[in-house]
């Protein structure tokens, strides 16, 4: 186990490369990304193109926003599988409400509504976990069903393809645009900025505030954290609330980019996102994990999920290949943990 307050200073005698890798799990993820990219690039050189790079960044947006929330929960020693249900709940309720009340509402207002819904549902998770001392996996499996079920039963089952104007505009807004030699337009959406902002915020909270220290402390060892005087209840409320908050935002961004609010969406993709966080160096047992690592983990998972056609893997084999890559990667991480 590394120190209670997260990983110890990397500078402490990195006697060998392996040792420095064990201290900086992000480096392992980075090496995996490089190895995988080289392999795919050898099979199909189109992998190293602007188009592919931009597409991968675009695909990282949604996974990244969700993953940073999951990271916060994992760091505190919990786990959350309800965040996709929270995301789709926030997306659908916000869209439906906006369409019926004020279709011309500014996007900022919609974002606020989504954030509020996400925060509320996340706090419910935190409250149950803390109050009843139930393992967070069980709690969030339960709330995933409840949130999704309530959405379908009480709010609606219909697809909304006619989106509020501001949401549609946000989904189409681009930061950069270029055209490839094949005449294919490539663009990086403005939503990418949301990921950047969320990453900076999460990094700041986890690394630069007392609350962040408390999160890693609780994740490292709950009894010790309590003895040290950390308010465990507040930490749990914070991490689940924060994960909910980001889930709400992620849901709305997903809907805007996907140009529809589909109440059956998202739920089912949580394992991909948790895998990204774990491949980014966070341990399911808590107390570890960093924002840069998580972002690299997201990139890794996105590359795995979006390169199978480039590699020419037949559809029936795609899941086998995804699973195998994740197993290999996690095997490397297990080795690291054992020696650390």
């Amino acid at each position: 186990m590394s120190g209670l307050l997260g990983e110890p200073a990397a500078a402490r005698a990195p006697s060998s490369t392996w040792r420095s890798l064990t201290r900086r799990p992000e480096l392992v993820t980075l090496l995996l990304i490089v190895a995988l990219s080289l392999t795919i690039g050898l099979i199909n050189d189109r992998f190293f193109s602007v188009q592919n790079g931009v597409d991968l960044l675009r695909s990282s947006i949604r996974t990244g926003i969700f993953a940073l929330g999951v990271l916060t929960v994992l760091a505190a020693g919990g786990i959350d599988v309800s965040f996709t249900a929270i995301g789709v709940f926030a997306l659908y309720v916000t869209t439906k409400l906006t369409m019926s009340v004020w279709p011309d509402a500014p996007f900022a207002l919609m974002a606020l509504a989504s954030l509020a819904i996400g925060l509320g549902l996340g706090l419910v998770n935190g409250l149950i976990v803390y109050r009843f001392r139930v393992p967070s996996l069980i709690v969030t499996i339960g709330t995933q069903y409840v949130y999704r079920g309530a959405l379908l039963a009480f709010v609606g089952t219909a697809y909304i393809t006619d989106l509020p104007r501001a949401m549609d505009a946000f989904g189409r807004a681009t930061l950069l645009q270029t055209t490839t030699a094949d005449g294919i337009r490539v663009s990086l959406p403005a939503a990418f900025l949301v990921l950047v902002a969320v990453a900076l915020l999460t990094w700041y909270v986890l690394r630069r505030t007392l609350l962040g220290r408390a999160v890693y402390a609780v994740g490292g060892s709950l009894p010790i954290a309590e003895r040290l005087g950390f308010n465990v209840g507040r930490v749990l409320l914070f991490v689940f609330g924060y994960a909910g908050l980001l889930a709400g935002l992620g849901g709305l961004v997903h809907g805007a980019m996907n140009r529809q609010a589909n109440p059956f969406d998202l739920v089912g993709s949580e394992l991909d996102i948790i895998a990204a966080v774990v491949l980014g160096g966070a341990r399911v047992t808590g107390g570890t994990g960093s924002v840069p690592g998580t972002l690299l983990g997201v990139v890794l998972v996105v590359i795995i999920n979006n390169s199978l056609i480039l590699m020419g893997v037949p559809s029936t084999w795609q899941k086998v290949v995804i699973g195998a890559i994740i197993l290999v990667a996690s095997g490397i991480f297990a080795r690291r943990s054992a020696t650390a």
Binding site: Q51, N52, D55, N258, Q260, G268, L308, I309, S315
Partner: peptide
Amino acid sequence: KQETYDDADKAYERAKEILRA
């Protein structure tokens, strides 16, 4: 044949990948 899991976003990702490949 590409699987999309009845999900527009998956279909989008697959189509993007086809366009790249």
